[in-house]
Design a protein around this nucleic acid. Structure first.
Lengths: 236, 236
DNA sequence: ACCTGAACACCGTTCAAGT
DNA sequence: ACCTGAACACCGTTCAAGT
């Protein structure tokens, strides 16, 4: 039992939080056992008494990032719920860019991830979306959101000078890249353009619109397998 | 001038190809200067005579992966062109999963990437899509495609036993995850379900449908700024 | 001009030793 | 029970030395 007022002893929770802090500051490659130990004022080797090794620590980090994404609220319609969750996922990944490294590559599905998936499906199904369409909705929305953050991080937009500074800096040769030059001139320069803020919402509503149209068509067309060919073979 | 029949001397091209081979085999973290040297039968330090360092080698690798993506063909309509490019991008990233690590994080836009962007915009604009909508289309499709591969790699679907083996292996507690259990039972088990093949195409057509609808609405609604509010303030 | 070995400051992890 | 120092096999990179 630790003394009062003394900072808690090493725990997996404290360790994963230190790891997240290091990742925020130095990026995922900066998360070494030695660096995490340093963050806690302890030798790297001490960590091995609380986590099995670096792989285990990264699994904890994957859970830490996933539990930060706000799930849809109970009773919320599918469209509001999915909009809320999608925005939250983007914000979390923007705040902790190393988080994207855990969407792929972590084999063991952690508990936070499974709870998140369950909440999404509950939101869609409770609002009456057919199972098959719910699976499509889940897939396409997750892909869009994570992919957006991926490209958003790539684009050096939103940096200091904003998009305009970037345009000037890249100085695309207009003869080799006429279409990109056109795009820069017409949608970026002088438009107060903010790629992340503007483009994310447009794309999100675009995908939600497409899902709403599909749902509408299925309700209109009857309930017996609207996702499959009429002959019911299921393709392939 | 190298002797006839002797394998070409070290060049940046040969080095980046060796690096790609190592990455295919061991993943991106496996790409060390020592490993790439070993792949070429040479000491790590020799590489420094042809590439500036590891960062420069990774930039070359980013170009290598991007130039593998098939661009839309000239004269192809926007929908066919974007479908072709999207499928190609997914195939390239599936064949070289480490490639996703370069969508983000490579700051300097390499030439292959810029040429790819230009080809996409040319395809959209030559088919008469307005600049603003073309920007949206580019953004939402790139996000969808890269995000899909990201989640596709995460899901251990498509492995050896197929989706069914996975379901058995995860053995989700049905009481804690009823909606996920329902989804597994109804869309995965006994359906010959192939997440990657089936879900990618559904989502892609969904996004393309949404873009087609938007294009249609804009053509119907007139050409003067259909993307902005009617009052023309542009929001914000 | 190109390749290399030794060296330096890192890394994850093991293990015997301390308290 | 928990922490640590030394050790091992790695890593990127520098530099003086070879050919």
């Amino acid at each position: 039992m630790p003394k009062r007022g003394v900072r808690p002893v090493l725990t997996p929770e404290r360790i994963v939080e230190a790891a997240a802090a290091v990742a925020d500051r130095e990026g995922l490659p900066g998360v070494s056992m030695r660096a995490v130990g340093r963050e806690l004022g302890v030798e790297a080797m001490s960590l091995y008494h609380h986590v099995a090794g670096k792989e285990a620590l990264l699994d904890l980090l994957a859970g830490w990032i996933m539990e930060r994404i706000e799930p849809p609220r109970p009773g919320e319609g599918w469209r509001d719920g999915m909009r809320r969750r999608s925005r939250s996922a983007r914000e979390v990944m923007r705040a902790h860019p190393w988080g994207l490294g855990f969407v792929e590559s972590r084999r063991a599905p952690n508990d936070a991830l499974l709870r998140g998936h369950e909440a999404v499906l509950e939101c869609l199904r409770a609002d009456g979306m057919p199972v098959r369409l719910a699976a499509h909705a889940f897939s396409v929305l997750d892909a869009y959101v994570y992919g957006f953050v991926l490209t958003e991080q790539y684009l050096p937009f939103q940096e200091d000078g904003g998009a305009e500074a970037l345009v000037a800096e890249m100085a695309l040769p207009a003869d080799r890249y006429p279409r990109m030059t056109e795009l820069m001139r017409e949608v970026v320069v002088g438009q107060d353009y903010d790629y992340g803020a503007d483009e994310f919402e447009v794309g999100l509503e675009l995908v939600l619109d497409a899902l709403a149209a599909r749902l509408d068509a299925e309700r209109r067309g009857g309930a017996d397998g609207p996702d499959e060919p009429a002959d019911g073979t299921g393709g392939r």
